[in-house]
Design a protein around this nucleic acid. Structure first.
Lengths: 206, 206
DNA sequence: CACACTTTTTATTCTTGATGAGAAACCGAG
DNA sequence: CTCGGTTTCTCATCAAGAATAAAAAGTGTG
């Protein structure tokens, strides 16, 4: 604990293992993550992993935890840098961008966490539930503010709308391919959809 | 082949097995789908599966194929029932509802297919690529029409916007829980978000 | 250089789950 | 009730992969 900060060789190896786990997890899913693959990616012999983690699950658990934490902190930081008095809807757009950036380029961990959590064995999922809630709470607060400022379509249930929006963002990890389009393009489209989608709609017939 | 239609006992058992496979696939992912679990759900002895399928992969393959096909056909049917001259944006809303209904209540297969395809081994994914394209093509056409009718925000790239929207829909399978809210509520929120999100936005400051 | 500790390797065990082979159970037609 | 085909099960095998043990290789320090 104390020397978690100190950057010894072994600390670096350990980190490489966790990173590798996230990498594999992201592409293969929970059950498909083999220690041998993780080891290969981490440039380590498979049994060496047991020096750092006492079981496969413990390793995966940590990779997911790191991912959830990273997602939350990167979004939080991005929000902290924004002018505090900006309209909530703008802050929401900032969060959208940060979330996408984290998911798509900054961190395999975040993407792995997001995509994998649903497949985890119940016990493990339970352990991350709180982290998940914490993250969603950040968003909930944002949406609530948007509503207070009158920028949320009153016909929308805030909770449901939020989940639909987060879904749109999370799913990008499934299809976005750096080769096929710019990240900025995706971010812009997402921001626009969210902004206009949530906005109070004007006179609508039907 | 010829008597695929005939509903013999064995045909029913076979279907149960495929259904069970979809069920397990949906919750456990590709690698996590064990024949023993499938067998249990299907009320069959594990080795009995080999009477119908020559391998695990073949079974999964079929489950996915059924899912993709079901998704496409249910949406297509819903569209066929709509007045052909309705505005494209309305037809899009119909597709949204049909997609969600299929995913969330009609069929484990569709949900399994949607969620699992990215994890499949390359060879298998290849085999379904066409089916996927066919399905997306239906949506592409809808969006294109929306654009022609001038109801699509010109600042949005149609392809990207479509993926973002489909993501929002597909991800619902991860969180929606019949116990926690009505399906209709989700559908309505999604429709509203899509409608307003895609819509040509009015004077927007910055 | 020799010692005490950390990290990695190699060899081995144990479990789980897919698959194969053949036996048993079922079912409709004589 | 009895036979031939169909359908399903039982038992056995096999491979993959997680986990452990114990030896080996490093690393730093006096």
């Amino acid at each position: 604990m104390t020397e978690a900060a100190r950057d010894t060789k072994s600390a670096r190896t350990r980190r490489r293992v966790v990173d590798a786990a996230a990498h594999v997890l992201l592409r293969r899913g929970y059950a498909g993550t083999r220690l041998s693959d993780v080891a290969e990616v981490a440039q380590v012999q498979a049994p060496a992993i047991y020096y750092y983690f006492s079981s496969r699950d413990e390793l995966i658990d940590e990779a997911v935890a790191v991912g959830l934490d990273r997602a939350r902190s990167l979004v939080t930081e991005a929000l902290a840098e924004a002018p505090a008095d900006a309209p909530a809807i703008d802050r929401l757009a900032i969060a959208v961008a940060a979330h996408l950036r984290t998911l798509l380029t900054h961190s395999d961990h975040a993407a792995a966490a997001v995509r994998t959590v649903p497949q985890l064995p119940e016990a493990m999922r339970e352990r991350h539930r709180q982290a998940q809630r914490d993250y969603v709470a950040v968003w909930r607060a944002l949406v609530a503010q948007v509503r207070e400022e009158g920028d949320l379509d009153p016909a929308l249930d805030p909770g449901t709308a939020l989940m639909v929006v987060l879904g749109a963002l999370n799913w990008t990890a499934e299809w976005w391919d750096p080769a096929r389009g710019s990240l900025e393009g995706v971010i812009e489209a997402a921001q626009r959809l969210v902004r206009d989608g949530l906005a109070t709609s004007q006179a609508d017939g039907a």
